[in-house]
Design a protein around this nucleic acid. Structure first.
Lengths: 164, 164
DNA sequence: TTGGAAAGTCAACAAGGCTGACATAAATTC
DNA sequence: GAATTTATGTCAGCCTTGTTGACTTTCCAA
């Protein structure tokens, strides 16, 4: 079957093409989470912990509210996860100095270690995929993903993208 | 910040680049599931039902074992979902003619209707993203996703890709 | 000083994963 | 033909991670 996904600028969006994209997202996301999941399992954490650790690492000193926005879960759900990370000494929560209602979140050294382990694994897979596909494919990959986001999430993504 | 994701064939895989890819996957997957999730909510189904319906539609007459392979869950987990779909008259389960131990799964008309509704929504978003990003980006998108899959999942994906 | 925002907590619930144990029918092997 | 294996289904119980609702404490700002 001729794929016709080439760069000739034609529209080619058959249902078949779109379905393949949908299934690619499904199977790829499984791969994407597989390595961290294996690590987390050995440590009695889950994906929710990974996400929190990732974004705290990404934006040290971020507040709970901000994290809620990014993760898109309820504070009760996030709190449960943060609670265990704080109790286990991976995350430090500090009262804000300008606004003392806010809690600013940081990874401890122990938290950094877990983050490192998880992101090393995830980056390794991403790196391998990027190498296999090549730079041009990577640019396209990012473009399509970005276009697939909800506008609000795209805002969050771009905010993070430019160091912040 | 110069992005340097262009097509000049150099290696550019900084941790920063990889992190962006990781976050793009995270946020994009949220968008990817958002529309079906909204529809499913109104019908008291979840993502697990969507996945079952999708792959039964995709491979009519598929067996329970095959579905287990593709979805990567336990039979107990799948059974709970199939049970409700069968009881609600969306899926028909038939004893195999050559091997009567197997159950062959089909969508009923009602099941086809739900599948249509869900996939229309998901395709609409995918189509919009593809249009925005352009054909060349789409090819790259698919290449990277494919490279990101576990080998076993890539096999499943390719099996499905070529009608079947 | 009071209203509302930020955060935390308790309780209860649901979806959808998981394991383990067991049942049944049918196919396959010995 | 008997024994074993395979495909499926089901019961029971557990876990994670999401949800809603109610309530409190803290504290900024009008």
């Amino acid at each position: 079957m001729a794929e016709n996904t080439g760069g000739e600028g034609l529209l080619f969006l058959t249902d078949e093409q779109l379905r393949k994209g949908i299934e690619a997202m499904f199977f790829a996301y499984r791969g994407f989470t597989a390595d961290p999941d294996r690590i987390l399992e050995t440590k009695d954490y889950g994906r929710a912990h990974h996400r929190a650790v990732h974004f705290i690492h990404r934006s040290p000193g971020t507040t709970v509210s901000n994290l809620l926005l990014i993760l898109g879960v309820t504070k009760q759900s996030l709190n449960r996860v943060l609670r265990s990370l704080i109790d286990d000494g991976l995350v430090r929560s500090e009262k804000g100095k300008v606004d003392a209602r806010e809690r600013h979140l940081h990874l401890t050294d122990k938290g950094q270690m877990l983050e490192r382990e998880l992101s090393d694994a995830q980056r390794a897979r991403m790196r391998a995929a990027y190498r296999t596909a090549g730079p041009q494919a990577v640019a396209g990959f990012r473009q399509v993903l970005e276009a697939m986001m909800d506008p609000e999430m795209r805002r969050q993504y771009n905010r993070l993208k430019e160091g912040g």
